[in-house]
């Protein structure tokens, strides 16, 4: 229950601003092209890509015509359903244990913070958790993760700054095997998806996990920042190509940013959004809910 109210509140700010815009539209009476153009602009303002927004509005027009909708409010409700359906069309993988979860993404999207929250999430479900400080590049990334490990009261495997991240992963995985830990969560350094050598490094970490711990279920999650624009799709495509993603963690959904790019993302790459970060506290991570996301979007 807590989740729904929290994500709803987080999106309410979004909703308020868009809701006001919609109300202004309602007064116009007849449903014309202007109304649909405005809806399209609302989607674009929420960082839904132009192409996706156009497609969605085309679908909406047809559906509305078929169902002979006359009231604009119904059209908006229908639009919400269309978006929610798009997001729900993808199957969400259920986690199986023992599990290794690796978080990847560009710099500053909130990987380390999300790992702290994820650790807490699994600890609360009674699982044993081990963190692997795989960001050996950024200054003090290891320290930052250690603080989160303390907060979530979980173990951490950490090497020196500048050491090989694959070695950290190997040690963590070995330790998890020996101690029968349920979940290993691997932090990785932020990397821009256009840097070939850094993507190679990631592939290597990927191989190390697959090879040294084949019996574990391996989940690779991309962390995306909700304030990002269309570049998010480019990021997702590159990371997916490199290591075959299982899901997305959408962070910073607590501001006015709407993260509308996930609509395009789900359509094009078929990667489901698994979690949403809705605040800075350790409990502020929730399983993603398409319905309330779409609700908040409009």
């Amino acid at each position: 229950m807590g989740f729904f109210s929290k994500i709803f509140n987080a999106l309410k700010k979004t909703k308020d601003s868009i809701g006001a815009k919609l109300k202004a539209l309602f007064s116009s009476g007849k449903i014309g092209d202007d109304f649909y153009d405005e809806l399209e602009e609302i989607l674009i303002s929420a960082d839904v890509s132009v192409t996706t927004a156009e497609e969605i509005i085309e679908d909406l027009k047809e559906d509305a015509k078929e169902s002979r909708l006359k009231e604009e409010e119904y059209v908006v409700a229908l639009l919400k359903d269309i978006i929610a359906d798009l997001l729900e069309a993808l199957e969400v993988p259920q986690i199986e244990y023992p599990a290794v979860i690796m978080l990847v993404g560009v710099n500053g999207v909130g990987k380390t913070t999300s790992i702290g929250k994820l650790a807490n999430y699994y600890v609360k479900q009674g699982k044993s958790v081990l963190l692997a400080a795989g960001d050996t590049f950024r200054a003090a990334a290891g320290e930052q993760l250690s603080v989160w490990a303390d907060r979530a009261k979980v173990r951490i495997v950490r090497h020196e700054e500048g050491s090989d991240p694959s070695a950290v992963v190997f040690d963590a995985v070995s330790s998890a095997k020996a101690r029968k830990t349920d979940v290993v969560i691997v932090d990785t350094a932020g990397r821009l998806h256009v840097k070939a050598n850094l993507m190679e490094e990631l592939k290597k970490m990927n191989r190390v996990v697959s090879r040294s711990y084949p019996e574990a279920h391996f989940y690779k999650l991309l962390v995306l920042d909700a304030t990002t624009g269309q570049n998010a799709v480019s990021q997702a495509r590159a990371f997916h190509e490199a290591i075959d993603l299982d899901g997305i963690v959408l962070t910073k959904l607590d501001g006015t940013a709407k993260g509308g790019f996930v609509v395009s993302l789900c359509g094009e790459l078929e990667i489901p959004v698994l979690f949403a970060g809705v605040g800075e506290k350790i409990d502020d991570l929730e399983p993603f809910d398409a319905e309330s996301f779409a609700q908040g979007l409009l």
Binding site: V106, G108, T227, G229, Q235, F261
Partner: peptide
């Protein structure tokens, strides 16, 4: 962050109104 989407305008506008920023640095 140079990858920021539509919200960049709100962010910049609010920071500017509250703090009277003197300049912007674009990263990444």
């Amino acid at each position: 962050d140079s990858t920021t989407g539509q919200v960049a305008v709100d962010v910049a506008d609010t920071f500017n109104k509250r703090l009277e920023i003197t300049g912007v640095i674009l990263t990444k």
